[in-house]
Design a protein around this nucleic acid. Structure first.
Lengths: 245, 245
DNA sequence: TGTAGACCATGACGCAGCGTCAAAGTCAAG
DNA sequence: CTTGACTTTGACGCTGCGTCATGGTCTACA
């Protein structure tokens, strides 16, 4: 199966722009032809899109959906159970609103705002998202801080230290990502994250690596140190994690 | 009953910012103390807010909601029936999604995107909104064109003619809005709308009049011809319509 | 082999519906 | 008469796209 953007769009019932946007924010990254830049969607992408649509239906933000799906412990069965629970909560809320309309139709002048309340649902949603985020290592907050750093909005010593690592990556970007220098670089990077942010396990590190190329905003920031820095760092991380997996 | 913003917000389960915004776009215009500028919400506002929340729940845009509620033929009973219909459609869609989840839980690998389809619902919604808009005289499109005109993006003869009327209004703005000059002005204005836009009945004219002060964007544009022009024109229209009502 | 027409890419701007500050005015209690 | 809770307006930011504009690509048919 090899679907073009418009075919994929039609199949999933979304617009082509939506697909492009999802690619941009690193939510759905189809195979991209190296020469033409055309996107080609496969079966895995379709399956992922179905998940995305479900969570979107449940009013998760796209970044939350990204975190949930990126979770290395993601369990399809458990996800289904949770989706069912949230869907039921949503339906029950609609039923309450319906009952309110019915009552008003019968002439009862009920002025309840309570039926509109969706805090219960929102709480459940937040809990779910937060849980995934916690397991996934707070990647999102980390990315945001990094984007700020890379955008030059922070000139602390920490930012300088980070930039130094990125410059080293840029300098090595035409060498073998599995070479000892690259390995040392990745180790330093992992150490930096663990020191300044949170305990960076190999699993999280691998996730970051894929994100460096998948998420366009992130990739651009890295490539400002030299074109190809992002993909080099990503490859180096893959090599590092692969050798320890 | 006289509720402050935060009290009203708490009662309706929305934020104070939301209430401010609704005031800004002319969706909910509470009584405003002339000196302090404080907003005070009464029972009518609470009832209107309940309507707003219902339509918002059904995913109407705020401008559509404004048009629906502004409709001089608005019938509460019929509105309830329609709300019920749309709510049911929404619930049925959720039920379809639930069924899909259940099927997947049972192991059936169903890959339906059809269940996500909401075009039926959207069509019903559009139909409803379009109907209200048609009865209400396409006020929204008209306002938009006027905003463009007032923003100086159109320098046609039509724009000049319109501006001339507004300048006349500004010149009269410290006189009696029920005076013959004001009356003539309103008549010219009504004629202008009927000629260039659509048949402007007294009913529609009255609606426009209230909108001139209620909708901040509109008011500002008018007050560029001189502070108080909007409220003068509004008062003149009220006087005109009252004398014919 | 050209070329037409349908498809695709990126980039940029716009929009709704608010959240979230900042700066300044208002109100009731002590 | 001050303090603290509340209010105002204004401005900027955010998400999740829609909607161009501009230009490359692919296939089909002459």
């Amino acid at each position: 199966m090899r679907l073009s953007v418009s075919q994929m769009a039609k199949l999933c019932g979304v617009s082509a722009r939506t697909l492009r946007y999802y690619g941009q924010i690193g939510l759905l990254h189809p195979e991209t032809a190296a020469d033409s830049g055309y996107r080609w969607y496969g079966e895995a992408d379709v399956a992922r899109m179905r998940q995305i649509l479900f969570y979107r239906e449940l009013d998760f933000s796209l970044s939350d959906i990204r975190d949930i799906l990126a979770d290395p412990h993601y369990d399809k069965q458990e996800a289904l159970l949770r989706q069912r629970r949230l869907l039921r909560m949503k339906r029950d809320r609609l039923d309450r609103l319906l009952a309110l309309v019915e009552a008003n139709l019968k002439g009862d002048k009920i002025m309840e705002f309570q039926a509109f309340d969706s805090s219960e649902l929102e709480a459940a949603r937040r809990e779910y998202a937060a849980e995934a985020k916690a397991r996934w290592g707070d990647t999102d907050a980390w990315r945001q801080s990094q984007e700020k750093l890379a955008a030059g909005q922070d000139w602390s010593a920490q930012a300088e230290e980070m930039n130094a690592i990125f410059r080293r990556a840029a300098a090595l970007r035409d060498t073998d990502p599995a070479a000892p220098e690259a390995r040392t670089l990745v180790e330093d990077w992992k150490q930096f994250i663990s020191t300044h942010c949170y305990d960076c396990t190999d699993e999280i590190l691998a996730g970051l690596g894929t994100m460096y190329t998948a998420d366009e905003r992130f990739r651009k920031n890295l490539d400002r140190f030299g074109g190809g820095t992002a993909s080099f760092l990503s490859a180096a991380i893959t090599a590092y994690c692969g050798s320890r997996g």
